[in-house]
C-alpha cells in the first residue's frame, strides 16, 4: 500500500513539474516577445539621462519626461500621418470588403464562360506579391496623375487585398444554403436585393476576418507609401516614423517617443480585436 502511494504521489509530482515546465517555457518566450517593445515604451517616458543611466528602470519622478513626444509633435506632423493612414486603411478595407463580397458572390453563384479564368486570376494574386509590378504601377500612377495622392495607395491596396478576400468570402458563400436564394428567386426578388439584403448580412462574420487580414498589411506597409506617396502631405504613419527616425537617429528621446506613438495605438487595437483576429486565424478560414 505504501508502495502504491509513493507511486501515486510520484505521478502527481511529475504532472505538476511537467505543467510547470510548460508554463516556464511559455512565460520565457512571452518575455522574449514583449521585452524589446516594453523597453522602448518605458524609456520613451524618460529624459536622456534616465534612458542611458538605467534603461531597465521605470520612469521615476526624477527621470520622467515627455520631452520626446513634444519634440516629435513639434518637428513632424504626426497627427496628419496618422490621419492619412486611417483614411487609406478605412477606404481600402471598406472597398475590399464590398467589392470582394460582390465578386465572391458572382464567382460562386453564377455560371458564365470566363468564371474559371477569373477565379484563377484572383487565386494567383494570393501567392504572387503585387510589389513585383511596382515599376509599372508607378508608371501608371504617373500617367493617371495620381502620384503623391492617397487615392493611389487606396487603389493599390484594394488590388492587393482583393484576392484573399475573394477566396475567403467564396469559401463562406458556399456554406450558405441554396434554399435561401432559391426561395427569394421564386418570389421574384431582384439579384441585387438578394445580394444586399440576404447574402451580405450573412457574410458579416467572414467579412470581419477578412477586414483584419486586409487591414494589418495596409497599415504596416512601407513600400507603396515610400514609392507612390512620399510627400509630406500624404505620408502614412509607417513612412512618417521611418523618415523621422532616419532624420533624428541620434535624438534618442524623440526616436523612442516616435516608435511608442506608432506602437501603442496598434497594441490597443490588437488587444481589443485579438479575439476576432485569432478566431479568424484558427477557424480555418485561411487554409
Amino acid at each position: 500500500m505504501r508502495l502504491t502511494q509513493s507511486f501515486l504521489s510520484n505521478i502527481s509530482v511529475r504532472n505538476v513539474s511537467k505543467s510547470t515546465t510548460v508554463h516556464a517555457v511559455l512565460l520565457a518566450y512571452t518575455v522574449i516577445a514583449l521585452f524589446p517593445i516594453l523597453i522602448v515604451i518605458v524609456n520613451s517616458f524618460k529624459d536622456r539621462k534616465g534612458i542611458f543611466r538605467d534603461p531597465l528602470a521605470l520612469p521615476t519622478s526624477d527621470t520622467f519626461s515627455m520631452v520626446g513626444f513634444e519634440q516629435v509633435l513639434l518637428r513632424s506632423d504626426f497627427g496628419l500621418f496618422a490621419w492619412n493612414s486611417i483614411i487609406v486603411t478605412v477606404l481600402a478595407v471598406g472597398l475590399v470588403l464590398l467589392l470582394g463580397a460582390m465578386a465572391a458572390w458572382a464567382l460562386t453563384e453564377y455560371r458564365f464562360r470566363t468564371n474559371l479564368l477569373i477565379t484563377f486570376l484572383f487565386a494567383m494574386g494570393i501567392m504572387i506579391p503585387i510589389r513585383l509590378g511596382t515599376v509599372s504601377i508607378l508608371r501608371l500612377m504617373v500617367e493617371l496623375n495620381l502620384v503623391n495622392t492617397l487615392t493611389s495607395l487606396v487603389l493599390v491596396y484594394i488590388a492587393q487585398g482583393l484576392p484573399l478576400a475573394v477566396y475567403i468570402l467564396s469559401e463562406f458563400v458556399r456554406t450558405i444554403p441554396k434554399e435561401l436564394v432559391e426561395a427569394a428567386r421564386c418570389d421574384a426578388v431582384s439579384e441585387y436585393r438578394i445580394f444586399f439584403s440576404i447574402i451580405l448580412p450573412l457574410l458579416k462574420p467572414a467579412m470581419a476576418t477578412v477586414a483584419v487580414f486586409t487591414m494589418i498589411p495596409i497599415w504596416n506597409d512601407l513600400w507603396f507609401p515610400l514609392i507612390l506617396a512620399p510627400s509630406e502631405e500624404t505620408r502614412t504613419i509607417t513612412l512618417g516614423v521611418q523618415q523621422f527616425v532616419g532624420q533624428y537617429v541620434t535624438n534618442w528621446t524623440s526616436v523612442l517617443a516616435a516608435l511608442t506613438m506608432a506602437i501603442v495605438p496598434v497594441l490597443i487595437l490588437y488587444t481589443i480585436f485579438s479575439r476576432q483576429l485569432i478566431r479568424g486565424l484558427t477557424s480555418g478560414a485561411v487554409k
Partner: peptide, 15 residues
C-alpha cells in the same frame, strides 16, 4: 473589383 484588380495588379505585373 475585377477592374481595379486587373488595372493595378494583373496588368502592372504583365507589363
Amino acid at each position: 473589383g475585377l477592374l481595379i484588380y486587373v488595372t493595378f495588379s494583373v496588368y502592372p505585373l504583365l507589363d
